[in-house]
Design a binder for these strands. Structure first.
Length: 476
RNA sequence: GGCGCCAUAGCCAAGUGGUAAGGCGACGGUCUGCAAAACCGUUAUUCCCCGGUUCGAAUCCGGGUGGCGCCUCCA
């Protein structure tokens, strides 16, 4: 069975064949670090991580690159506003991004290249384009000559003719043609700049991604990802400049994630219409946020709201509950050693074996995490059923295998079902109330027991009376 | 205006030619002192509308309607 991926450039779903056998190169466009990351930025990161983990699970070695564009108009504007160096602004936002990469259980990239640290590579690329007449210096800037690339527009479905009608040359630009875009931007007063053959200046937007992806992944690599809103002009321009410079195809599979919506409108930093990930994670377990993000296919838009998150919380609690039920029956789970995917031999039941197959099939079909997640719930139900049966060797085997499969498959989605909840400490005062209630129950004083339960619930804890004990949990 | 994507139950969401996964919610039952959790069952004769292709369509084609994205910075 093969991995099938929809490529946004060819608009076809094709079998995935890596450029180099067994090895995958992947580039995901990260943020322009003018501000702190919002949920939309993190969706792109989670989607990239989903793709990466799926490839890892299939045994590929993956080189994963996630860039930062750290010099750009808006960053400079922000620095000016705050009266500090632009690199301070960039650094602060990068640090914040990485903090939530960790919180959302996104594997760290192999490289987080920054534009300002790749000026020589960028200049080399610009030089290559100039030498082949794909680019021209003009008034201290360097522009890409769009008309020299007839296939310009192939990713976004645009035609040069159509684009031309709407384009204009802005004041201060020195373009031969309105469609031409900036590769190198001549220095302005008070702005950071680097010396170059065309005069002091800084990189334009787009060129850094071409230069850095080529440096770490080669001129032709496997996956290029990022938000749908980057298709035009960013990715279109990357393709143009890269393919002209090298004469080779750039990325083989373009995988764009759908946008995070707020009240039916795109979450976006430029319109101030967004939720910062740090604010969301203050209130919501990051595991829930990740679950929510994976519960819709990555190409579709996803509505962000408290209700959605609450539903995700309930749903995830079901998965957690099945593991919990198994733990209570079997004892705690031993963490698996190594990263090898769970095998059908370890499944312990027909249900769990079917779950593995169905899960693999879902993820292998264009990384369908929503479908894969669905199959996990079917297993969870079976496990709860087994946990409720009288113990026999058969049920024990099934439950053990089910737990192993559930934890392993969820783990490949980056959802750790073994991690303790964020808040699990129960204060002594609450424990004391629980003990009082247990005594009341022993005396069959139901009125008092119920009164105490209400008090405990108002304090934020739920109770579950079992045969021999009462389980206290923080109220969701 | 141009290009593109989408429309599945009360809500969310899989499903791209073979007769509607899954989650949340609701309702009924089992369990329980009562609950909670869990389990069992019910909750879309039908997939925005109208035509067409086909033995057969949520799935393909044509035409509507509605929503969103891109065309300027954007994950």
């Amino acid at each position: 069975m093969s991995l099938r991926v929809l490529d946004n450039l060819s608009r076809e779903k094709r079998d995935f064949v890596p450029v180099q056998t067994g090895q995958v190169g992947m580039y995901v466009c990260g943020m322009t670090v003018q501000d702190r990351p919002h949920v939309g930025h993190m969706r792109a990161a989670v989607v990239g991580d989903l793709i990466r983990r799926t490839l890892l699970r299939r045994g590929y070695r993956v080189t994963y690159v996630n860039n930062f564009t750290d010099v750009e108009d808006k960053i400079l504007a922000r620095a000016k506003e705050e009266g500090c160096d632009y690199l301070q602004v960039a650094q602060r936002n990068m640090t914040c991004y990485l903090e939530f990469v960790d919180k959302l259980n996104i594997l760290r990239a192999d490289h987080y290249p920054r534009a300002t640290e790749h000026i020589p590579e960028i200049q080399d690329l610009v030089q290559r384009l100039i030498q082949q007449d794909f680019a021209y210096p003009s008034g201290g800037d360097v522009y890409f000559r769009v008309e020299r690339f007839p296939r310009y527009g192939k990713l976004s479905g645009r035609k040069i003719d159509e684009l031309r009608s709407g384009a204009r040359i802005e004041v201060g630009e020195n373009k031969d043609n309105p469609l031409d875009f900036t590769l190198w931007k001549g220095a302005r007063e008070g702005e950071p700049s680097w010396p170059s053959p065309w005069g002091p200046g800084r990189p334009g937007w787009h060129i850094e991604c071409s230069a850095m992806s080529m440096k770490y992944l080669g001129e032709n690599f496997d996956f290029h990802g990022g938000g749908l809103d980057l298709i035009f002009p960013h990715h279109e321009n990357e393709i143009a400049q890269s393919e002209c410079a090298t004469g080779k195809a750039f990325a083989n599979f373009w995988v764009h994630n759908g946008l995070v919506m707020l009240g039916g409108e795109k979450m976006s930093k430029s319109t101030k219409h967004f939720f910062l990930i740090e604010d969301v994670c203050q209130k919501i377990d990051p595991r829930v946020v990740r679950f929510y993000l994976l519960s819709t296919h990555f190409r579709s838009p996803i509505e962000f709201s408290e209700i959605r998150l609450a539903e995700a919380d309930q749903a995830l609690a079901r998965l957690l509950g099945a593991v919990q039920a198994a733990n209570e029956r079997l004892g705690p789970t031993l963490p698996r050693d190594g990263l090898d995917p769970v095998t059908p031999e370890e499944a312990g039941s027909e249900e769990a074996r079917r779950t593995i197959d169905a899960f693999n099939e879902a993820l292998d079909d264009d990384f369908n995490s929503a479908k894969g997640l669905g199959h996990l719930f079917e297993l969870a139900r079976a496990m709860n059923r087994w946990a409720g049966e009288r113990e026999t060797p058969e049920f024990r085997t099934a439950l053990e295998g089910g737990r192993r499969v559930l934890v392993d498959l969820a783990g490949w989605l980056g959802i750790d079902l073994l991690a303790p909840s964020e808040v699990c400490e129960v204060p002594e005062a609450v424990e004391e109330l629980v003990r009082q209630r247990t005594r009341a129950r022993a005396e069959r004083n139901w009125a008092e027991a119920d009164r105490l339960r209400n008090v405990i619930q108002e304090a934020g804890y739920s109770l579950e009376d079992r045969d021999d004990q009462t389980i206290v949990r923080p109220l969701r």
